[in-house]
């Protein structure tokens, strides 16, 4: 780990002022479950670490007119304990999927959204696009855990657990910067980088995620396909949120996780579901539709099947909810 200057401001304004206009100059420390390992691996070498845990306004879960407000510093465990989140099983299932008590205890909502990809080439120092001496390491190397969707040059998968359910639920993310607050949809928050100097989230180096707002929800669920019960990244996930009209689906949001550089909105499957009753066959067909434009790499064809199953099972779980 490179030596760094440490700051622990008490207010958001102070914290923002301590962050520079360039990536890599300063880093925001909340739970630290990702940042510390990035720094130990020299993937991130900030000159200054800004601890935001002392900023009170970034905590807490409360009801607001626009929906449920969840502060960026709220931990996974605090979400599990919150009665207000019971109406959002899609979020809770994703939180439970963070199957490490230590990370649930320390990890925060903001940290989940801002964490860097787990791609082993990125973590090995080869950059977001994993290029090395003219080779595309993901395509030519081991890509068993990499993306099956997306047209961009990046092939890592978004590591965010909360991204897919928040997009499905139509959540908005509030970001504070030198010019004040701005709000983006969860969907627009995630971007696929075009170069190694880009980021995978639509945030500036001197901005901080402050809170998310989740509107009232209809039926919703998340299904994760995972190898282990122990701490493990899901192989593929699907989060769904449904608006029902009688027994049929009025509208659906279907968002896949761990299959693309961003949470992946399955627009064709959403369209397919509109007006249909959610039977086993319809759910299965929706899964197939969601995966129709998947493009497997040499070692991850299995994830196409997992994406289909995740969508099917998430839909059936939501139908039962």
């Amino acid at each position: 780990m490179q030596a760094f200057e440490y700051a622990s401001p008490a207010t958001l304004q102070e914290a923002i002022a301590l962050l520079g206009p360039k990536w890599g100059e300063a880093a925001v420390l909340a739970g630290g479950t990702d940042l510390i390992s990035l720094m130990k691996d020299y993937v991130d070498t900030p000159k200054r670490v800004v601890n935001i845990k002392g900023i009170k306004e970034l905590g807490g879960i409360s009801k607001a007119a626009a929906g449920l407000r969840i502060g960026a510093l709220v931990t996974f465990d605090e979400m599990l304990a919150s009665a207000d989140l019971k109406l959002y099983p899609a979020i809770l299932a994703a939180v439970r999927g963070v199957s490490s008590p230590q990370i649930r205890n320390m990890g925060t909502v903001g940290g989940d959204l801002c964490q860097r990809p787990r791609c082993w080439y990125f973590r090995g120092g080869f950059g977001l696009l994993a290029r090395h001496e003219g080779k595309n390491l993901v395509e030519d190397g081991d890509n068993r855990y990499h993306a099956i969707f997306g047209d961009g040059p990046a092939r890592f998968v978004s590591a965010s657990s909360l991204g897919p359910p928040l997009i499905a639920l139509g959540a908005r993310i509030t970001v504070a910067g030198p010019a004040g607050n701005r709000t983006v949809t969860a969907e627009k928050f995630f971007v696929s980088p075009k170069s190694d100097s880009d980021r995978e989230i639509a945030i500036k180096p001197n901005e901080i995620v402050t809170e998310i707002t989740v509107p009232a929800a209809g039926r919703n669920a998340t299904y994760e396909v995972r190898q282990r019960e122990a701490l493990d990244w899901p192989l593929a996930t699907a989060s769904v949120a449904l608006r029902m009209k009688g027994s049929s689906v009025a509208s659906a949001r279907i968002v896949l996780g761990h299959v693309a550089p961003t949470p992946w909105v399955a627009a064709a499957a959403e369209k397919f579901l509109a007006g249909k009753s959610l039977t086993q066959d319809v759910a299965e067909e929706a899964g197939k539709t969601a995966a129709a434009d998947a493009k497997a790499l040499s070692g991850n064809a299995y994830k196409v099947q997992l994406a289909k199953v995740a969508v099917k099972r998430a839909l059936l779980a939501a139908a039962k909810a």
């Binding site: 199957s99 190397g141 081991d142 855990y145 190898q227 282990r228 122990a230």
Partner: peptide, 25 residues
């Protein structure tokens, strides 16, 4: 143990992708 054919390096020289069973497994 997963070694990268291109770089020759171990890709899972950690306890994250070098997967071991947990109590639930």
């Amino acid at each position: 143990r997963i070694l990268c054919g291109v770089t020759g390096r171990m890709l899972n020289a950690d306890m994250e992708f070098y997967k071991l069973a947990g109590a639930g497994d």
